[in-house]
Design a protein around this nucleic acid. Structure first.
Length: 350
DNA sequence: AACCACGGCAACCGCCTTAAT
DNA sequence: GATTAAGGCGGTTGCCGTGGT
C-alpha cells in the first residue's frame, strides 16, 4: 500500500478564490504553518484540493510577496538568469525572493520575451543596415560567436548544476535554494512572528475589503460578492486576528529596519538602487492585499538573495570554481559572463 | 456607445520527483 | 523493492480589464 489519498476529486471547487476562503486558509496556516497540504482542505472545510491551497498560499497569500511592476534591476536579473538557467522559474524566483515563480513566468511570457524579440530583430536589422551579409566573413564570425555562446551557456549550466548538486559542501547555492523552497517553510519559523504578521495583513486586507467592497481586487475578489453573512463571519475572524497583530508589527518593524540597513549598505557598496526603494512608487498601484504584505518578512530567506546580480554572479561562479575545479569551464563561464553583461548593457542602453 | 482585440495574471493541468507505506 | 500519493514545477488556459476603432 502507498500513501493515503490526498483529496477526492468530487466536490472540489475551482476558479478564483474568494476573500473568505483566503482568510480561512491564512488563519489555518497561521495556526499550523504551511506544509501537509493534504490535510488543509479537510481541516479547514475548504472545498479546494490540496494543490490549489498550496498554490494559493505560495503564489498569493504567502508573506513577503511583492506585487506590481518589476524594477529595471529585477528585469535585468530575470533576463540574465533566464539566459543562464532557462525556463527554470522556481530557480530564478529563488534569486528574487519577493517574487513568485508564477509572477516571473507571467512577466517573462507577457512582456520580457516580446521585448527581447523586438530588441533582437532591431539588432539584426541594424546589422543588415551596417552591411552584415550572410555570405561575408563577418557572418562567419557571427556564426562562430553564436556557437561559442551556445557552448558557453551549456557549460555555464553544467557548472551551475554541479554547484547545485546535493553532495557539495553546505555553503553552496543549493543551501540558499533550499532555504527558499517551500519545504523550508515547514521548519518552525524563527518565532511565530511571520504568521502573526500575516494574520495582521489579512485583517487589514479585510478591513479594506469591507470598507470598500465596490472596488475589490481583480479576479478572486472581483468575483466574490460579499454578502452580509460573509461580512459578519469575516468580521469575527478579523476581530480574532487583530489581537495577534501587535507582535507581527514589531517583527515587521525589525525586519524593515534590517532591510533598510542592508539596502543602504548595498547601495553604498555597489551603487545600485535598492530593490525596495526603487519600488516605493508602486505602493499606490498594487492591489490592497498585496500592499499589505509589503512589509512582511520571509523568515528563511538569506540576505544574499537581495544582492545585485554582478555580486551574485561573482559569488555564484566563485562557488562553481571551488566545486568544479575545472579551470577551463571557469574561463568559459567568465567569458559568457562578459558577453552577456555586454549584451545586457547594449539592450538596456537602447 | 458598442464592439473587438489584446494584454495581464490567477489558476489549472499534467508531468516528474520525492517520500511514505 | 514496488506501489502510490504528495509535492513541486513549467506550460497553458481562460477570465477580466483596457485601449483602440
Amino acid at each position: 500500500m502507498g500513501r493515503p489519498p490526498c483529496c477526492d476529486k468530487e466536490g472540489v471547487k475551482k476558479g478564483p478564490w474568494t476573500p473568505e476562503e483566503d482568510i480561512i486558509l491564512v488563519s489555518y496556516i497561521q495556526e499550523h504553518g504551511p506544509g501537509n497540504w493534504r490535510t488543509v482542505p479537510t481541516n479547514t472545510g475548504l472545498l479546494r484540493c490540496s494543490k490549489s491551497c498550496r498554490l494559493r498560499w505560495t503564489n498569493y497569500l504567502r508573506p513577503g510577496i511583492k506585487r506590481g511592476n518589476f524594477t529595471d534591476q529585477e528585469e535585468k536579473m530575470i533576463i540574465h538568469l533566464q539566459a543562464l538557467l532557462g525556463n527554470r522559474w522556481a530557480a530564478i524566483a529563488s534569486y528574487l525572493p519577493q517574487r513568485t515563480d508564477n509572477d516571473i513566468k507571467n512577466y517573462w511570457n507577457t512582456y520580457l520575451k516580446k521585448k527581447l524579440n523586438k530588441l533582437e530583430t532591431g539588432l539584426s536589422a541594424a546589422h543588415s543596415r551596417e552591411g552584415f551579409s550572410s555570405t561575408t566573413s563577418q557572418s562567419m564570425s557571427r556564426g562562430q560567436w553564436e556557437r561559442r555562446l551556445q557552448t558557453d551557456i551549456h557549460m555555464a549550466k553544467q557548472a551551475l548544476s554541479e554547484a547545485l548538486s546535493p553532495d557539495k559542501p553546505p555553503t553552496t547555492l543549493s543551501d540558499f535554494e533550499s532555504s527558499n523552497s517551500p519545504v523550508s517553510c515547514n521548519k518552525p519559523p524563527q518565532g511565530s512572528s511571520s504568521y502573526a504578521s500575516s494574520t495582521e495583513n489579512i485583517a487589514r486586507l479585510l478591513k479594506g475589503w469591507m470598507r470598500n467592497p465596490a472596488k475589490p481586487a481583480r479576479k478572486s475578489s472581483a468575483t466574490a460578492t460579499a454578502t452580509t453573512t460573509q461580512n459578519n463571519s469575516l468580521r469575527k475572524i478579523c476581530a480574532g486576528n487583530e489581537s495577534a497583530s501587535s507582535e507581527g508589527t514589531q517583527s515587521a518593524a525589525n525586519y524593515n529596519s534590517g532591510m533598510e540597513m542592508c539596502e543602504a549598505a548595498l547601495e553604498s557598496l555597489f551603487g545600485f538602487e535598492s530593490f525596495e526603494s526603487s519600488n516605493s512608487d508602486l505602493s499606490g498601484s498594487v492591489s490592497p492585499d498585496a500592499s499589505l504584505f509589503q512589509d512582511e518578512s520571509k523568515p528563511d530567506t538569506p540576505n544574499v538573495d537581495q544582492l545585485p546580480l554582478s555580486l551574485l554572479e561573482k559569488w555564484l561562479f566563485d562557488e562553481s570554481a571551488i566545486s568544479t575545479t575545472q579551470g577551463k569551464e571557469q574561463q568559459l563561464i567568465s567569458n559568457y559572463n562578459d558577453m552577456t553583461l555586454v549584451q545586457n548593457a547594449d539592450f538596456f542602453s537602447s
